[in-house]
């Protein structure tokens, strides 16, 4: 398990990284490397050139913007999980980041790397999809913004062009008094989920749902936002959640995978939807 040979360029800043990328034929960006390095070690990825982004300080950090948190692509999971601003403004994102891999993985792994890698079971793509995060891409030729739902195309496949760099993602603020929940079914702690779901719920003064968002991960080839409009006006409760979950997974295109067939995946995704909604409702109750 040793990588195939590659050349290495340590980019001084994003401009440098993009310029080198523009002139390269078979290059890959290296940020935290926590997904890329295993693939290199297994020789499942074998770029001729690695462009190391770790010195690009301008790609790192959390800033408060209009209607959301703008998070630099090089921001580490550990930072998302522990930063006071993220924890107060977007606790769901902080919690999701805190469940990624292990401590050592979170210290190196980055938001941009996770989004660009696009593992269907990964936490940050799920939250980005749920919240309608906007992903900022840049290449030597220019910049563009793309919504998460359009960004994630398939397993390990995104709308990013090979010469484009994820530079940041903006996560819209959760509305005041919104409850949130994350549920993951993992074979062991720190492993990628077998099924996952995230939810936000807002209730009116009478305790009825006024706004709901749901997304599931790990069971389709990308994280999927669910249509939760039908929940408006309903009162949160186990039966409402279970009925919603069963209908929602029934509408998804879920295939068999090794060791787990489509029925299992639908069933477990529904279980995670119920768990995520239950947690969200409990928090919404407190917030209201």
């Amino acid at each position: 398990m040793k990588p195939a040979p590659f050349a290495y360029h340590r980019a001084a800043d994003a401009t440098d990284a993009l310029a080198v990328m523009a002139g390269a034929s078979d290059a890959a960006f290296l940020s935290g490397g926590q997904s890329l390095a295993p693939m290199l070690n297994l020789r499942m990825a074998r770029p001729a050139l690695l462009i190391d982004l770790n010195d690009c300080a301008e790609l790192s950090g959390v800033t408060l913007g209009d209607g959301g948190l703008r998070i630099g692509a090089l921001t580490r999971h550990h930072h998302l999980a522990t930063d006071a601003t993220v924890r107060s403004r977007h606790p769901l994102l902080a919690e999701a980041a805190a469940t990624i891999g292990s401590d050592a993985i979170r210290r190196r792994g980055t938001l941009g790397g996770s989004l660009a890698h696009a593992d269907p079971a990964a936490q940050l793509p799920l939250i980005a999809t749920l919240c309608g995060a906007v992903i900022a891409l840049q290449s030597a030729r220019g910049a563009r913004m793309i919504e998460a739902d359009d960004f994630f195309v398939s397993a390990l496949e995104t709308a990013r062009e090979p010469n484009e760099l994820v530079v940041a993602a903006t996560f819209p603020d959760l509305a005041p008094a919104t409850g949130w929940g994350l549920a993951q079914l993992c074979k062991v702690a720190g492993d990628f989920a077998v099924a996952s779901a995230a939810a936000t719920l807002a209730l009116d003064g009478a305790g009825a749902i006024v706004d709901a968002r749901l997304a599931v991960g790990a069971v389709c080839d990308r994280p999927m936002a669910l249509d939760a409009a039908g929940l408006r006006g309903a009162r949160p409760g186990p039966d409402v959640f279970e009925d919603f979950a069963m209908a929602a997974v029934g509408a998804l295109d879920i295939a068999d995978a090794p060791g787990i067939d489509a029925d299992d995946r639908r069933d477990l995704a529904a279980a995670m939807i119920v768990e995520a909604m239950t947690r969200a409702a409990a928090r919404a109750g407190r917030a209201a």
Binding site: P38, L42, K187, V188, A189, G190, D191, F192, P258, G259
Partner: peptide, 26 residues
Amino acid sequence: SEHVVYDRDGQNLSTTFADYHLATAV
């Protein structure tokens, strides 16, 4: 959680620690 899984063609699907799951302290 541990399971060495072979598919019907005899391909081993559990050849990394991301696929062969040893229980953790949790």
